[in-house]
């Protein structure tokens, strides 16, 4: 029983680690692509910097919030798992 409980916590930490890794990977690529396109657009037409910046700001805010969500879920899995107490009790027996 103890081994099963321990496995549960190991799975939680592994899931948190992989979750934030995948999120950071995806958000990094997305932000990079967005920024690349914006810089290229501004380089071609410097007068459009205002327009591009507004669109980029909204896009980056959306992408960044996805990464923050993943961080929150990862931290919940590690530090504030809803079933942690029940599993700990099980582990104590």
């Amino acid at each position: 029983m103890e081994a099963e409980a321990l496995k549960f916590f190991i799975a939680c930490v592994t899931a948190a680690g992989f979750g934030i890794a995948v999120a950071a990977f995806g958000c990094g690529i997305a932000q990079g692509l967005g920024l690349k396109a914006a810089v290229e657009g501004i380089a071609r037409n410097p007068e459009s910097s205002g327009k591009v910046t507004v669109t980029l700001l909204i896009g980056l805010a959306m992408i960044e919030s996805l990464c923050i969500y993943a961080l929150v879920i990862a931290l919940i899995l590690i530090y504030a798992h809803p079933q942690a107490e029940a599993i700990s009790k099980l582990f104590g027996k």
Binding site: V39, L56, E64, I68
Partner: peptide, 20 residues
């Protein structure tokens, strides 16, 4: 507060970095 302040800071950073 975290996301709202973050959004405003991001906006300031982008304006300073991309607007000639």
């Amino acid at each position: 507060l975290i996301v709202t302040v973050n959004f405003h800071l991001l906006s300031r950073t982008l304006k300073k970095s991309l607007a000639p």
